[in-house]
Write a protein that binds this DNA or RNA. Structure first.
Lengths: 271, 271
DNA sequence: ATCCCTATTGCATCTCGCGCAACTATCTGG
DNA sequence: CCAGATAGTTGCGCGAGATGCAATAGGGAT
């Protein structure tokens, strides 16, 4: 357990890290010399290591400046393993939320078209009914998860997504058209989480927050829902709690909060 | 240009790749044994390499199943990988293309050696089962994206890039050698976009156009692909549409069509 | 208890990663 | 046109450390 042989592999990984540092990224990558100085290593070996990394696509070189940057291959690795990580990292967070923080049913969901697909559920032990929520589809327009998943959408995109979708159904407070939905999304955007009061079903309230991945886009949503009489009073608290948990999950997915919130890579997923 | 001494670093990177393979992801990670078998290496060394990777956070171990998964560090790196501007500017364009203009699946891709890496995908909402294309590699020689990405290549560069690459596979109309590929690239060059008819896969047609950055070089490609019966008729229209969108993206990346390219930066390196 | 499967560790072997220094290439200013 | 600076690659001898085999340890199942 004590002294690891500071393997050459370890040094190569440190090299990748150095290329991902704020400084390196800000400069559009670093050259061999700069990297060697930063790592306290010889130029020659840095050069050779970079060649291997470049051949594998883990770093790439700018043709003009000779600077190395983290390559697309790393991006590809993360993209392929992303779903797996969402589930793996999500499960313990759901468990903690239901056991320690909220004591109500928690869901992890993704957007599929204009609907919301539940991919993970955690229920409090005392709940008797074991409805299999995982795999179930619900509308996006009248659920807290939907609100969170749509939080980055522009007005016209929303319009196109819900073209031909009947609003109407759901609870008494469900939005009646895209305009109302848009207004509520704007509200959610301000606080960073969505609160829904009897929109999906009478007597049901919920809170949800978006989960983002390394691309910066929303890939999932975390939500808590429960009967109004049990949760309504705590909802002003539950909102921020859900948001904090969603942010935590986002960071595990490589979300870089420092980056300006730009794109929304909403893409459908299969459980 | 012979075989590199397949460094230990290279082997470690292959290990990461293996963990991100479809099979490994589907199984929730792989154990040491499975990995060793897959890579044709000794268990002991795989175990040791994984320990280093795990210490660095590049892989993680599932406490129960002992299976290794891609770790947080890769996701953190991924946020810094590649060209983030391209991703940020590309996402909304993809969404618009699929929702408004074409209604078929759109991809944003980059060249990775002699292959094409998909970095962003947008599917129409009605498509139920979405194969996760992002992060996947396909050949460059028989895909529309590949054609677009290679559009500036000279004949000899092409030869070098595809030295040792087996053509053959793919759809019925796939190019059989570099000569055929070269002819088709010349065709694409004239119109500014590439049309591909059952080259990658039987029954699949596609159109793609190159995306350039401020230096004038091709950095990515935008493409639409769909079953022949659904898209073929619209393909003469889809080509220009894709090209227009690619040009729009190019401009966002600072491409100045008026200015001649500042020397085509070809940094292709063969492995 | 044995058998099977999996992961880790001890050890001898020798590859290959290492630092030094030389070399190439490009730019700058005198 | 050369001197000097910067930036990256390559040759080489040495030894750290990666490797494969075999032994060890921990489960489960029967």
């Amino acid at each position: 357990m004590a002294d690891e042989p500071s393997s050459s592999l370890r040094r190569a990984l440190d090299l990748l890290d150095a290329l991902a540092s704020d400084d390196a990224v800000a400069h559009g990558g670093w050259g061999v010399n700069r990297l060697a100085a930063h790592l306290g290593r010889d130029q020659s070996q840095v050069s050779r290591t970079l060649r291997v990394l470049a051949d594998a696509g883990f770093v790439e070189r700018d043709g003009e400046t000779m600077a190395y940057r983290v390559g697309w291959h790393v991006f590809a690795l993360a993209a392929r393993a992303g779903d797996q990580r969402l589930l793996a990292a999500g499960a313990p967070i759901l468990r903690r939320l239901v056991e320690k923080d909220l004591g109500e049913r928690i869901h992890l969901t993704v957007l599929q078209g204009s609907q919301v697909l539940t991919i993970l559920t955690q229920s409090p032990p005392h709940v008797v009914q074991t409805v299999a929520w995982a795999g179930r589809l619900v509308p996006a327009h009248n659920t807290s998860s939907g609100r969170a998943l749509l939080i980055d959408f522009q007005r016209d995109e929303l319009q196109r997504l819900f073209a031909g979708v009947a609003f109407g159904s759901g609870g008494p407070n469900a939005p009646r058209d895209v305009d109302e939905l848009w207004e509520r999304i704007l509200t959610a955007r301000r606080s960073g989480y969505a609160i829904v009061d009897e929109e999906f079903e009478p007597g049901l309230v919920a809170a949800a927050a978006p989960v983002r991945d390394f691309r910066g886009g929303v890939v999932a949503a975390l939500n808590v829902s429960a009967p109004k009489f049990r949760l309504w009073g705590r909802l002003p608290l539950a909102g921020p709690v859900i948001k904090a948990a969603a942010d935590e999950l986002s960071i595990e997915l490589g979300y870089d909060a420092a980056r300006p919130p730009t794109l929304a890579t909403t893409r459908a997923r299969t459980g």
